[in-house]
Write a protein that binds this DNA or RNA. Structure first.
Lengths: 333, 333
DNA sequence: TAGAAATAGTGCCACGATATAATAACTTGA
DNA sequence: TCAAGTTATTATATCGTGGCACTATTTCTA
């Protein structure tokens, strides 16, 4: 029923081994025979069985991706790029949605049963234990946008301090002096770093924050901050929000009260979430280089798997400021 | 180095077969011995090798999911539910992001190399050929929210006609008589069905549409429709938007021009996209039962794989109207 | 306590490919 | 033309597990 390598060999009038050679691009096959084999494979519509191959080679051709949620366009984008980039290496993608904090040991089974040759860990939070386990088992892995920046791990991430700094600098350059920040959850290093960048930019300019509000990367965070300021009686002229959700919340609250952005307030977000791309006014935001991140992570992982990697390195990419419609020079209206 | 079933057998003082029996939950193992085996497995931290198992059993324990994009919260949610529901069956998830229309034969390799035991096809558009190929190869599959409703395929979907009908009925019940619809791309059956539901509800009430505008499930679609109406000089009092993005675009355009929702216009969306859940005013929308959909699809697929499924059935779920803040009785302000 | 039923164990092959090492077939040069 | 060297091919063992057909042992039942 099922065509195996034997059938191909028979049809081509050669041995199984020769067929295997062709499959694995071994050099020592006469061109004429190679053609015969290819022809036979085609006619029989033969495709090697992955399980048998894995068993014999000790490699699966599968990469596992551990991700806490798919409900985030930045992560989705990264995953999508990982997927397409892996294809170039003829690798497949197995996804384990971790659902933190319920499942801490996500993807464990993938490793234990030797289902994957390597792992990409996305945006994990408390990954130390997990990662040490991987290390102990000698499973190649690369951390993407994780907090753990131990130099002994392969890791790619985006410079959040720089992002916070640039976003704030942009507002300062527009002449704003009354600038607030709405933080992300302190739980995430990214939030802490962005705040640090914010504070640094201000102090560099000899300014003090109008306010620094708590938030959790949600629309509500931005909405509530504005409510609070209104109740207290005064608004800043500019806000650096820890992410696009927060920024949208800010704009939403302002619009609802009859204020306009950027006339009454300039707002900068973070992430360039696709879903908000079309909302008016178009959001000025910090874009993270998802594709670069994905590509680099995959490349590094592949080198680790092939053993051609010398040492582990943390690579830091720069975010990019996208100036759109929610920021304007102070008092320009 | 690597622990195999032999090591476990040795440690437990039993034969390999008995260990294998324990692994496969065969009945004929004395409880005492089963414990001995489990104990040995634990101590050695043994886990069966997936490749060897697949090869021997002819099953992989992996389900493939074909999806066109991860940038949609409805699909994401479905995938996430699939993932967690599969765990109950001890199955893993391999994802193939199709990127329609570039890659039509997505996931082909998954099948050809016997990497999966079955497939879940999400929201495919022109899947006839693809699906026929699956059928020919006798790969179990279930279509989720696909257009193809041939009764000979297993398929689960949400009743879009009903959704369109209910959304519109809600507006009619609120007293609206000037109701418009902004369509989704005609390309999708879901869009066509929702429009049909819309028209049916109106005609049932003896009403005519204020307008039916073209759209493509985007924020811009909604935004542009409002712009157009404003230019033409009059607005409907209510709008049924083909999806939440469109609805957000409508609200966005209105707010920008100083109109308020629902004071000046009632708006109903479709999908209950998570990302908009916190936006004010909270969107009245049609929620699709993502979890039910995922659960049922997985169950059916499992039954197909186990051969306990008699015949293929199309199951249609009902969407649910979530009345929130963007709809109000006509003239209530 | 015999006999039936449940439980364990043995050994061998299959699964579909690759690795290894031995063998065969070509080249090449003097 | 033939030995030496190189390239191509093949037979066989192997990867880790499950299936099968029996046999051996233990436990339960009447």
């Amino acid at each position: 029923m099922k065509v195996s390598i034997f059938d191909v060999a028979k049809k081509a009038g050669l041995s199984v081994v020769t067929v295997s050679r062709v499959l694995n691009n071994a050099k020592t096959v006469r061109e004429k025979n190679r053609q015969k084999v290819l022809q036979a494979m085609k006619e029989l519509n033969y495709h090697p069985n992955a399980a048998a191959r894995s068993l014999a080679k000790g490699k699966t051709g599968v990469i596992g991706v551990i991700v806490t949620t798919l409900q985030d366009s930045f992560l989705d984008t990264v995953v999508q790029h990982i997927s397409s980039h892996l294809k170039q290496y003829s690798y497949y993608l197995a996804i384990s949605v971790a659902n933190y904090p319920t499942e801490v040991g996500a993807g464990k089974e993938l490793i234990q049963e030797d289902r994957v040759d390597g792992l990409l860990v996305l945006a994990a939070v408390h990954e130390e234990d997990y990662v040490n386990e991987l290390r102990r088992r000698k499973i190649p892995f690369v951390l993407i946008d994780c907090q753990n920046i131990q130099p002994s791990f392969s890791s790619v991430l985006v410079d959040n301090f720089q992002g916070g700094y640039e976003a704030t600098k942009h507002l300062i350059d527009l002449g704003h002096t009354s600038i607030a920040h709405i933080k992300g959850s302190d739980y995430f290093l990214s939030a802490i770093e962005r705040e640090r960048g914010f504070r640094y930019a201000l102090s560099e300019a000899g300014l003090k924050p109008f306010a620094v509000e708590f938030g959790q990367f949600t629309i509500t965070s931005g909405y509530d901050a504005v409510q609070k300021w209104l109740q207290e009686g005064s608004l800043p002229t500019a806000v650096f929000a820890a992410d696009d959700f927060t920024a949208i919340g800010v704009i939403n609250a302002l619009t609802e009260k009859g204020y306009q952005v950027p006339r009454d307030m300039s707002v900068v977000g973070y992430d360039d979430q696709l879903m908000f791309a079309e909302l008016r006014p178009h959001l000025t935001t910090m874009k993270q280089p998802a594709e670069q991140l994905a590509r680099h992570a995959v490349d590094v992982l592949m080198r680790q798997i092939n053993g051609t990697n010398k040492r582990n390195i943390t690579v830091r990419f720069e975010p990019e400021l996208l100036i759109r419609e929610t920021t304007a020079p102070v008092g320009s209206y």
